[in-house]
């Protein structure tokens, strides 16, 4: 499940909720991404989504991860709007019978979310605001998952 959230959320609470009531899950992996201050260069991060479109595109990749890694369940929380340094931007949790699938699927989903998910990101710092586009590093991370 993917949910866009416009208010701060508690990743610990999200993880605890995701772990509850499972008797066939052997492994849960999770990742939390926080907004970085970049040594004072970023005072505010703003994420714009296209409601409906953004969830559907992420949902397609979530379904791909479920099929590829044999997941039992996925939870993705993604912030939108203004996000000050230190707050969680993204939370991904994956549930599987065994740990390898859970770890790898979490990594796979984060590489997608960081590089190609339908968000538009603006950083504000002492020199003003600028729109950010994916880096070469993000593209390389994504290329790790290409199957020949």
């Amino acid at each position: 499940m993917i949910r866009l959230v416009s208010q701060p959320f508690d990743p610990g609470e999200a993880l605890a909720g995701f772990c509850r009531g499972r008797s066939e899950t052997g492994a849960i992996a999770s990742f939390t991404g926080l907004a970085r201050a970049e040594a004072g260069q970023t005072t505010l991060l703003e994420l714009e989504a296209y409601p409906g479109f953004t969830e559907r595109e992420i949902g397609r990749h979530e379904a791909a991860a479920v099929a590829r890694f044999g997941l039992q369940d996925v939870l993705i929380l993604h912030r939108t709007g203004p996000i000050p340094p230190g707050e969680a931007i993204v939370f991904v949790a994956t549930a599987a019978a065994h740990r390898r699938a859970a770890f790898e699927a979490c990594d796979f989903l984060m590489d997608y979310l960081k590089s190609r998910a339908p968000f538009w990101k603006k950083e504000t710092g002492p020199d003003g605001a600028r729109w950010i586009e994916p880096t070469e590093r993000d593209r390389d991370d994504l290329a790790r998952w290409e199957t020949s």
């Binding site: 991404g33 994420l47 296209y50 993604h78 912030r79 931007i89 993204v90 997608y112 979310l113 960081k114 590089s115 190609r116 998910a117 339908p118 968000f119 538009w120 990101k121 729109w131 950010i132 586009e133 994916p134 993000d138």
Partner: peptide, 8 residues
């Protein structure tokens, strides 16, 4: 109209 998507 969607400029390059930046990811989150």
């Amino acid at each position: 109209f969607l400029p390059p998507m930046s990811g989150g």
